[in-house]
Amino acid sequence: MVGPDHPPLIVAEMSGNHNQSLDRALALVEAAAKAGAHALKLQTYTADTMTLDCDEPGFVIEDANSLWAGAQLYRLYDEARTPWEWHAPLFARARELGMIPFSTPFDTTAVEFLETLNSACYKIASFENTDIALIRRVAATGKPLIISTGMASVGELAKSVSAAREAGCDNLVLLKCTSTYPATADNSNISTIPHMRQLFECQVGLSDHTMGTGVSVASVAFGATVIEKHFTLARSDGGVDSAFSLEPDELHRLVIETERAWRAVGRVHYGATMAERQSLQFRRSLYITKDLRAGERLTRENVRAIRPGFGLAPEHLEEVLGVVLATDVVRGTPLSWTLLRGSPT
């Protein structure tokens, strides 16, 4: 399902937008399926597997421009986590609705747990894309692996990709990602997608944190085969990631427009397509514009390049001026060589 022969795989990222309600989480699954998303992604961690319950410098977000300014990391992750006991019913509901459920594990205990649920594939988050041990453990499952590339240098990605392949990963997707929340179009740099695909010889997609769907749709023209977007029922409901998440109608438009973009990419082509051939008749061509008798000469007053396109091509106008007609013609007759005395045919 992933590759240039298929429409982009659309992944709805639930993240912490369930707001600690299982009913809301299930409603998110159902809304994502109704919108047409192909896959549902969770995040599997606990506050303790992510950080320490600590107020020392570095454990509190000090960036005043951050969505989470002033938040202590431990409490933020505890608020955003998806309880592990929810995973089974969420996976089951996604499968019932025809979506592929999978998750981002943030440590090896999460991988072991997700293996019991038969996760179809795995995602490595941008902030973990240099965690070689985690990448090796996930790759050892033999499942397809998606790695977000936010902040990573080419050298760091080379190490991560090599580790994944050496540990048994045969199906790898890298996601171009900008790890700001929200991201802007100006720092998305989706021109990197084809370069990344050529450099690492794998499928490349986009983990998109920008507002709206424009950047995601544009990425398809650069060859993105997987699009991941955060998803919520309504931004006004709040939640840790709601501010840069798509609502259901926006997710539905994303599915439609990315497939439309994929179909539009096509191949290099010149000349009329099959669909255009009927339109050729509306090109300009040379027509007789007055009733004329045999022996009269063609002039700019009695022959013009007009629509439709059943006469000689306009490029022949100078060539036929002054030529004598071989037969009577009426106004509105398409000019052809057979009407001219001494014509090439």
Rank of each mutant, 00 (worst) to 15 (best):
T178S: 01
V154H: 08
A326W: 12
A35E: 12
R341Q: 09
G295P: 05
N118E: 05
D131W: 02
Q20P: 09
K34F: 11
T130G: 01
H230D: 03
I10T: 03
A94T: 12
T184N: 00
R95T: 03
A12T: 15
I146P: 01
A152S: 15
D291E: 04
S242V: 14
A326Q: 14
F106V: 06
A35L: 10
A125C: 03
N17C: 08
T51F: 04
A69D: 12
Q72N: 15
G3S: 15
Q278H: 13
A224N: 00
T109G: 02
G142L: 10
E301F: 00
C121W: 01
H6M: 08
I10Q: 03
Y74N: 14
K41T: 06
L67H: 09
P314G: 01
V161P: 05
W337S: 08
G332L: 11
W84G: 08
V204K: 00
R95Q: 08
V11K: 13
N118R: 03
T327N: 14
A25L: 04
S245W: 04
L292G: 03
H209M: 08
T289I: 10
G342S: 11
P144Y: 00
E112C: 01
V268E: 12
R267A: 08
A264C: 13
V2G: 06
P308F: 05
V111S: 06
A31Y: 11
I288R: 05
K123N: 10
H252S: 15
L325C: 11
R235N: 09
Y77M: 12
T178P: 00
T46G: 05
E201P: 05
C169N: 15
I135A: 04
G155M: 03
L52C: 03
G150P: 01
M99W: 11
L325K: 13
A183H: 14
G332M: 12
F91N: 02
V320M: 02
S103F: 13
A185G: 04
Q281F: 10
A163T: 10
V330N: 09
R263I: 02
L114Q: 08
N118I: 06
S336P: 07
V330W: 10
A163G: 10
T232N: 13
N17Q: 11
D5Y: 14
V11E: 13
R235C: 06
M274D: 14
V255A: 12
L340S: 04
E257D: 11
L90S: 12
L97T: 04
M196G: 15
A313T: 15
R277W: 05
I227W: 11
